[in-house]
Design a binder for these strands. Sequence first.
DNA 1: CTGAAAGCGCTAACAG
DNA 2: CTGTTAGCGCTTTCAG
Lengths: 341, 341
Amino acid sequence: MQTRSKRPLTLRDVSEASGVSEMTVSRVLRKKGDVSAATREKVQEAARRLGYVPNKIAGALASQRVNLVAVIIPSLGNMVFPEVLSGISEELEGTELQPVVGVTDYQPEKEEKVLFEMLSWRPSGVIIAGLEHSDASRAMLKQAGIPVVEIMDTDGEAVDTSVGISHRRAGRIMAEEILKAGYKRIGFMGTKMPLDHRARKRFEGFTQTLAKGGVEIADQEFYSGGSALAKGREMTAAMLRRTPDLDFLYYSNDMIGAGGLLYLHEKGADIPAKIGLAGFNGVELLDGLPLQLATMDACRREIGQTAARIIAARNAEGASDEGQVVELSPTLSFGDTLRTN
Amino acid sequence: MQTRSKRPLTLRDVSEASGVSEMTVSRVLRKKGDVSAATREKVQEAARRLGYVPNKIAGALASQRVNLVAVIIPSLGNMVFPEVLSGISEELEGTELQPVVGVTDYQPEKEEKVLFEMLSWRPSGVIIAGLEHSDASRAMLKQAGIPVVEIMDTDGEAVDTSVGISHRRAGRIMAEEILKAGYKRIGFMGTKMPLDHRARKRFEGFTQTLAKGGVEIADQEFYSGGSALAKGREMTAAMLRRTPDLDFLYYSNDMIGAGGLLYLHEKGADIPAKIGLAGFNGVELLDGLPLQLATMDACRREIGQTAARIIAARNAEGASDEGQVVELSPTLSFGDTLRTN
DNA sequence: CTGAAAGCGCTAACAG
DNA sequence: CTGTTAGCGCTTTCAG
């Protein structure tokens, strides 16, 4: 139908091909304003025949509106963020808005760069992971004059609005359950990530609550890089060699927890009677393990949905420009690796 | 530093604040053309102080250039695509270009929508998964007048350029190795995905090669939804109940393969002597399993890098506008679940 | 090295 | 219901 052409088609081409003014063509193509069925048909036919694709750059400049929501996350390989994203997409599906993703690799400088880059496209809103940002990033977010939702975490001060869980509380709850179940000699394994503030907060909540119960972490180890499953396996083996009397292992994520679980299960360990295990995230991926790992879900999908809903609402007319804090409650699953007491 | 303002800052604001013409401000901010050190300093100081973020919409419209590469993939939850993406990002890092991701959920209509949407931003290139697209999508890709690289697969005709592996050949190679190892009673498990053409092609290559060796698939089962690990476990159990004399199980992806592996390992099956297993993808994630699953890597990262490099090269001056086919060679790993002879 | 003028392709705001 | 007139904020081009 179309002919090869170096220059992309413009509204004017459609206008000429259909004998209708540019303005009316624009109305038809945007389904905005009333146009008679006859001309509408003529225009659509011409547009289709030519293979016209509107130029959003020009449209956005003229209308001063860009229906994009910038979504800024640390990583895609983490399993948790794709789920947040699908919550966002799902929720935005019914609206004009579209998510655009930027990845920071947990680096504040990269976050700053990505944020700057995305804001320069003048999006209608920003959804960004975490509450910890560089001063420059916070300044940009404030200055942008658009709704900003910081997600995943509520332990801290948001620029505008935050949606997430309290990781301190999550660590605390896990510690309480472990104590309640009567475990005493507790080991911790996690990522060596000074910049993963949420893991850090969980760890803090965890150790502080143990301390209140008169228990101290008996051993701990941090890793970085490599296959998480393999790392969990190795670290668990090493830790039990070093501190054989541990009766509970708390992992900062489910993947290393699964590695530990597989290792102990093979060794014929008496789980959860003699040794208990728990991870974090509620990764559905792991459902087929020999034992179900105790874990705590982080409400990933729900966080995405809620954040997206807030942005969408604020973009609608007559929205209250108020910031808010939405704290979701993670649910603990005991699985097969934490005594229910 | 900045003041609250509803209206985002413009070049004119920076111009007024620095007492330098808009044009020269623009030159400084884009580091284009020669500007005296003194004025450059003045401009940069003003821009920083005000918190100016350039408006790329306006810039793109004026310059007729958008440094975006549209990347269109079926899914983010698949583990394989995030790796392709990181190959792309890595390769684009050194250039002006930036990837923008769109997800199709394996649905041709959604692909068409996403493609239309992305093309309307006039990107500098398109990287799109697969060779199978609707007529409309192919038309748009041809019409766009920008480099288009179809990735993952080379079994078929590309619009412009393709980079990937031959999935037919991958299936064939696996079949050859299985026959060579002397397995005879072979079961297949995979996703119920009429739209996953690559899985289909592997399956075809696999069965055709078995047939040449006088072997027919003894049993097969397809699933959809749910946790892949759990599905692999269940399907394996069911299949062996139904067809107990199977001596090899070929899985269309590593996750269900891992489920089967865990199941059989727990049952104390004699792997790989009495029963062999193989998956597909080379998912590093699974490195900590009790046995290493035989698999074939799909060159995910390398595909991303190559595709990005091609787009970048074509965007440089004096590039040959030629389409090409880049077929990469997947490597087979025997792991612990496929007899080496 | 710096500035002035003229759009990029589309849509808001008015007229008819 | 349809058309006309101005820009949107930046960059290209051409003069100084």
